[in-house]
Design a protein around this nucleic acid. Structure first.
Lengths: 125, 125
DNA sequence: TTACTGTTATATTTATAGTATAACACTTTA
DNA sequence: TAAAGTGTTATACTATAAATATAACAGTAA
């Protein structure tokens, strides 16, 4: 698994790790029941403290993306893909609502937004 | 002008003020050359330190939304509305790109997104 | 037993947000 | 010119979150 973190980002390192692992799970790069890197290994690779990795793993466990067992390691939770998809649809909905609010305040038409939308979605086929 | 701030928000107070004033300028609630509340007045109204308001005003000045003159006050910069609109379109574009990335990773179809989009944009007419 | 896993506790560093206070400087108006 | 309103600056302080360092502890598997 390829995790890239940035020190300069305003996003905390543990959040960056969380997001990278979530994405890997959702895209099936990390499969169900698969073991994640150990907190110490990942910490060494990323040149950060293992406590930072642990924080990321702890939160991923709370959100039920992974399951950690002392002495064994952390593993991807077998999860209903539909549930994850619902969560992602919710995220997209939030973004669309933000776009909606900007458009209302700035007097930007729905057509202009659709144009942008089509541009971004078509440009890579 | 009506500014509502929240202490609990993870968004810093000075950012909340910035956003509220930007929105007021963009929606023309605050018109060109109009004077903003003084740092002390706004600070009193919001029950916060005037330094927090000043920080918001300083950044708004850097972004050229307002112009501050010592001894006089802060005023809305006369600004090409097209430039502001371009900035807002850029913001929308960024959100659409985020949506695009989520959809790629999560295998969510363009049609599903369009459906959400139409739902949100149509529901308030 | 050894070498992996994760866990916990304590302390420290760093950066950011926000506050408090006081003194100072410019502008307007009576 | 004085007063009252603007903004400015400097210093110090508090609170919080993020991240680290270190060390000791505990479970698992070969």
């Amino acid at each position: 698994m390829n995790i890239i973190i940035s020190n300069n980002s305003s996003v905390p390192i543990y959040e960056q790790i969380k997001n990278a692992i979530k994405d890997a799970i959702i895209s099936n790069e990390l499969k169900e029941e698969e073991m994640l890197p150990s907190v110490r290994n990942l910490a060494n690779d990323l040149k950060i403290s293992f406590l930072t990795v642990k924080k990321a793993y702890d939160e991923l466990e709370q959100e039920e993306f992974i399951k950690t067992v002392q002495g064994k390691g952390s593993f991807v939770t077998p999860k209903n893909l539909e549930i994850i998809k619902e969560e992602k649809l919710k995220e997209i909905q939030d973004y669309i609502e933000k776009i909606y609010n900007i458009s209302k305040i700035s007097n930007i038409s729905e057509d202009e937004i659709k144009e942008l939308f089509n541009m971004i979605f078509k440009e890579e086929i």
